[in-house]
Design a protein around this nucleic acid. Structure first.
Lengths: 247, 247
DNA sequence: CGTAGCCTTGACCGACGTCAATGATGGTGG
DNA sequence: CCACCATCATTGACGTCGGTCAAGGCTACG
């Protein structure tokens, strides 16, 4: 088997649940529940089993920066592998389940099975690419670009996640919903704002503009994507990352 | 040996050169030389042996985002492990040497030696923490905060790197210089601007303000840090990361 | 001496934040 | 069924941070 996954399709992604043979327990979170906070002792590594979560940090001035969303199948709290304390918190946007693996077991297993290390490296590398993209975006893009990009990113990741983990996706119930043809997203604007480093007010204004342009629309279920290609144009979309399907 | 490194001092950091047993070659770069560009086929993983490098990406509008500086001892181009192409370019700020390891050898060795995988995971995780910090900073801080933070970050990383790799540090010659007591930094303002997502003009203005406040000073060798504590106050400095010495 | 980098400074302007008021929605208890 | 409150979204007025443009200075180098 070839180790490099550059040419991998989404369907070939390693399955994070493959590590389930090691001792594990499941944590359940309510909506807005907090699994751990920045600074908490880091004794477990987690995989999101169902629901939608996000990792975040607080800035000294009290503002929250959302580092990344975490979809079913995503690793979370990997900092535990290299540090005593979490450097970011983790909270849930919807009721969620996470599988917890004690760091020590996990580490030992890494030593025992190079393939697991490998999986890990790939997961982290994937995450890193998303982060650098976001970094470039936050630094250099206008609010509408950032927001359009964010909307597209969430869509792709949600679709990918639900393909891979149709069972426990769960996020559809509350936040995401891919109905006939059109994708619909229901997130508090505060989440978008804190992810992209914008104010809620400006997010609202920018979304209104996107609505005026017919790219999205309000619906009872949330934001409805009316014109994905239009969004891509605004976002100057180049795809999320090589290993995600273009779609 | 305990695998977790949260409690590690700088002196206990894993030595990236420990992988030198696998086939490798040294690449030399001139000042401003480019090792690879975004999109190039990724066939090697590198470790900076001497000099100062940086990884970057171009935004669609042509602006350059510097992702991170790379000091002697730092891994570079780790994307090669998981992707066919580099997602960022790498260039040198000073004449530099980099050790190149073919990905395939590297990968095989990862399978053979879990400890190497482990080292890798730690390096990437470390990098990730820096990235998330930068993300928070770029999104929520004022120019003077960002710049002060950047100055401090470079100082710590340069000091750490030169402790670990006193031989091949090399960066001192051109960019960094820790003379009697005061640290001195000589970087083009364009580098600071592109790292922090600011315009050169504004970097200049902000540095002038810091000079007015007596925190830094021009010197023939570059910027001289006159008041590190003052800088820390401006930057709301909380340390770079747990594994770096406070200093 | 002329040219090329790099830095500085001023004038101007736009994007985005803040503050504040107003609506919509939905859950809870009377 | 309605009153009440909490949460979230919208909208306007206004200020500011930082970008852009343009001009000029300083060194280094041929």
């Amino acid at each position: 088997m070839k180790a490099r996954s550059g040419e991998a399709q989404a369907s070939e992604r390693v399955d994070p649940f493959s590590i389930c043979r090691i001792s594990s327990s499941v944590k359940e979170l309510d909506k807005s529940g907090v699994l751990f906070m920045e600074g908490d002792p880091a004794q477990h590594v987690y995989v999101v089993k169902s629901g939608l979560c996000f990792s975040f940090r607080y800035h000294e001035d009290g503002r929250r920066q959302i580092i990344d969303l975490a979809f079913p199948g995503d690793f979370v709290g990997l900092e535990a592998l290299t540090q005593e304390q979490f450097v970011s918190g983790l909270s849930a946007l919807t009721p969620a389940e996470l599988v917890a693996y004690p760091v020590d077991d996990f580490t030992q297993r890494c030593y025992a099975e190079a393939a697991l290390s490998r999986t890990l490296v790939e997961c982290i590398a994937r995450e890193q690419v998303i982060l650098t993209k976001r970094l470039v975006g936050v630094a250099h893009s206008s609010a509408s670009q950032r927001i359009a990009h964010f909307l597209l990113e969430v869509r792709v990741r949600a679709l990918t996640a639900s393909e891979l983990h149709p069972v426990g996706a769960g996020a559809e119930n509350h936040c995401l919903l891919s109905d006939c043809g059109a994708f619909t997203l229901n997130l508090p604007q505060a989440v978008i704002a804190d992810t992209l480093g914008l104010s809620i007010v400006h997010v609202s204004r920018t979304l209104s503009k996107l609505k005026d342009d017919g790219l999205i629309e309000d619906s009872p279920a949330g934001l409805r994507y009316m014109n994905v290609d239009g969004l891509k144009a605004v976002a100057q979309w180049e795809g999320l990352a090589p290993w995600f399907e273009a779609s």
